[in-house]
């Protein structure tokens, strides 16, 4: 089986002002299907930029990005949008929900662009919201929800179109540690239930220790990769805290 993500000699250079900023300097990384991996590094290490490129929100300056064996770096804007819609679910630190839409409408959004008929949209969105444990809040707007609830809605939105790849950029950054752990527990459960490939960007070693593998980034290069032998179990730790 082809790996979900295969990066070869990937670079990214930003041109802001006079000095070009080389954010990624030749990344080689393979993420096999079904893995839960953490991208770790200090701020400015290039981990978020790398995640944006994997998530088709940005393009590499040079290098090869293959997704399930297909060359992504050659695709058109429209084709990239198609991948974001059907193959990738993205979870942001700031949740990025539509402020004037309800939780349900937010979750339905990717299905809108996939051309799914209204009744099926609603059924699928409701089922996922239910799985995320926010039953009863479907008609609430993001401002009426807690941070944890908003991030759950965002995760439901990321998953609603059955992507192969779930990407999370500092998903617990805006949450208190307890709620953050709860969200991470959700990622672990989803991974166990569906076998979906998950990439989490974090600067927190504790969060990274929940994943099966940790990739360390520093100044735009991968410095170390480490397999976690006994990942933490977030749900059990939560139970112990009670």
């Amino acid at each position: 089986m082809k790996p979900v993500v295969e990066l070869t000699g990937l670079t990214k250079t930003f041109f802001l002002g006079e000095q070009p900023a080389h954010v990624l300097k030749g990344i080689n990384l393979t993420i096999p299907t079904g893995e839960m991996v953490a991208l770790m590094g200090a701020s400015g290490s290039g981990k978020s930029t790398l995640l944006h490129i994997i998530g088709c929100l940005d393009r590499p300056t040079s290098g090869i990005y293959r997704q399930e064996g297909k060359d992504v770096h050659l695709l058109s804007k429209t084709e990239m949008a198609g991948l974001r819609n059907r193959k990738i679910g993205f979870v942001f630190q700031q949740f990025n929900l539509l402020a004037r839409a309800t939780a349900l409408q937010n979750v339905e959004l990717p299905l809108l662009y996939a051309g799914v008929p209204p009744t099926e949209r609603k059924t699928r969105a409701l089922a996922l919201l239910n799985r995320m444990g926010i039953t009863g809040f479907e008609r609430h707007r993001p401002a009426q929800l807690s941070g944890g609830q908003q991030q759950r809605v965002a995760i439901a939105r990321a998953l609603v179109n059955h992507p192969v790849l779930l990407l999370a950029d500092e998903p617990t950054g805006q949450l208190d540690s307890r709620t953050g752990l709860d969200v991470l527990a959700l990622f672990q459960e989803l991974h166990a239930e569906t076998g979906i490939t998950i990439v989490i960007v974090t600067h927190d070693a504790g969060s990274a220790a929940l994943c099966e593998r940790i990739v360390y980034l520093q100044d735009g290069v991968i410095t170390r990769e480490e397999t976690v032998n006994n990942p933490r179990n977030a749900r059990e730790e939560l139970k112990k805290m009670d």
Binding site: A81, G82, R84, N96, L97, L98, L109, N161
Partner: peptide, 12 residues
Amino acid sequence: GIRMSVGATEQA
């Protein structure tokens, strides 16, 4: 930006 991130094309 949010709409594009979940797959809205330029055309949409």
